[in-house]
Nucleic acid binder design. Structure first.
Lengths: 231, 231
DNA sequence: CAGTAATATGAACAGTGTTCAGTCTTCAAA
DNA sequence: TTTGAAGACTGAACACTGTTCATATTACTG
């Protein structure tokens, strides 16, 4: 006895080493230039061996995306310790933008890159994402309660607006789509401030969230019956 | 004589047919799954022949990006014929968002996809882009003059904020990063309205454009002395 | 008609994700 | 201790990818 446990442990060790190698390459060279062969070489296995641990390359990067969400969660959590409710909201989304700068590859994978086509393992283990979103919504709710936002504001809609609004500056920054010398941080800060000011101004919004906590977000909504759609 | 002219014409015809084939495949299957071999097959040439018309695959898509900017220009121009200055600004950027829905692949190529690494032909022929940007800035300036925005607002900074702000909802829409059933258009509309409201509220901005008309935008700023930077 | 210049190609190179028939190791049961 | 089964691992291959280059074909000029 104990044999099975040891085997499981060894299997897990190899699984982890694959993820470690993938992460190193991924962060150093970016998603597209990481190949199964490079990962295999790094862990001193044959390329084929990888496939008895992960069904496809996409699944490896899915596991990394999961990691990415955890990192983002930690960063956002650390940023939101201000006493002021409005400052907390600002800090939350500034942390989101900073994450895009510190971990651009993770960010692209999580929010921008084409959703991986053949997802073998369903998006399980992403429940904590709901927690992350719920936190962001709660922070906005507190700011509403504190009078920093109008009572008529839907915290959920506001959360989506801040989220979508800040993805833009993040992408612009990562892809260097500004003239040289222009300040990406200033642009992001301005977008954040202007969005917050707009939300404060009480402009009416039409977006209605459909309880995204139950659906999951970030591509989680691959319909159960979706069979092999193109691209 | 006249021979040279005819040769040039024939050469141009093949060049165009390559672009036509690339565009069709590109719009139908998306950037990553279009290969030189597929383009070659479509125009009934060998893959190698392509390389005597375009130095690399990237250059083909660079030419398509140029097309994309022209299409965007036309769409934005058509949208901005309202009498009201503020409505014009709104229409301008709503057209920008709609372009992302109608031509997602063009949009990704122009604003999101990784900048092509080895750009053979320098970003020439993009001068009209400055015109596009100048138009957007001018529309904001008119709204300021009409009293719709505070006099203290920098039209250039505002333009950048609307631009960056709307890229987010566009990407979210293209990548389907919302829970099923949620309304992408509503989110984009809200982001646009909230951004405009924020700009109207007179929040101070820190972004300073460095006369982007002279530098070009959208990745044009590959420094002259930049030799082969990774990824 | 000879020579030259443009044009197009087949074959190859080095790389990709992935599959699969086998081998090799490990370990429990006979 | 031997046998047999299960699992892990690999080499080789398949069908792709972008790109290069010597070669062949064609067209035009002097």
């Amino acid at each position: 006895m104990g044999t099975r446990e040891r085997q499981d442990r060894e299997r897990q060790a190899v699984t982890d080493s694959i993820l470690d190698a993938a992460r190193e390459l991924f962060l150093a060279e970016g998603y597209p230039s990481v190949s199964i062969r490079k990962i295999a070489e790094r862990i001193e296995y044959s390329p084929a061996a990888i496939y008895s641990y992960y069904p496809s390359k996409d699944d490896i990067f899915l596991a990394l995306a999961k990691e990415g969400f955890h990192r983002l969660d930690a960063k956002v959590h650390a940023a939101m310790k201000s006493g002021d409710a409005l400052e907390n909201v600002r800090a939350c989304w500034w942390a989101f933008y900073e994450f895009s700068k510190e971990q651009p590859e993770y960010f692209l994978l999580m929010f921008v890159d084409r959703s991986v086509p053949r997802i073998t393992q369903q998006w399980d283990g992403f429940e904590f994402l709901q927690q992350l979103l719920a936190n962001a919504v709660a922070a906005i709710q507190r700011a509403i309660d504190a009078g920093a936002f109008p009572k008529s504001l839907s915290p959920d809609a506001a959360m989506h607006m801040l989220w979508a609004g800040l993805i833009g500056p993040a992408v612009v920054g990562i892809r260097h789509r500004l003239a040289s010398g222009e300040d990406y941080d200033a642009l992001a800060r301005d977008v954040l401030n202007v969005t917050i000011a707009g939300l404060q101004s009480g402009v009416e919004t039409s977006f209605v969230s459909c309880k995204c906590a139950e659906e999951g977000i970030a591509g989680a909504r691959v319909p159960a019956g979706a069979t092999r759609h193109e691209s």
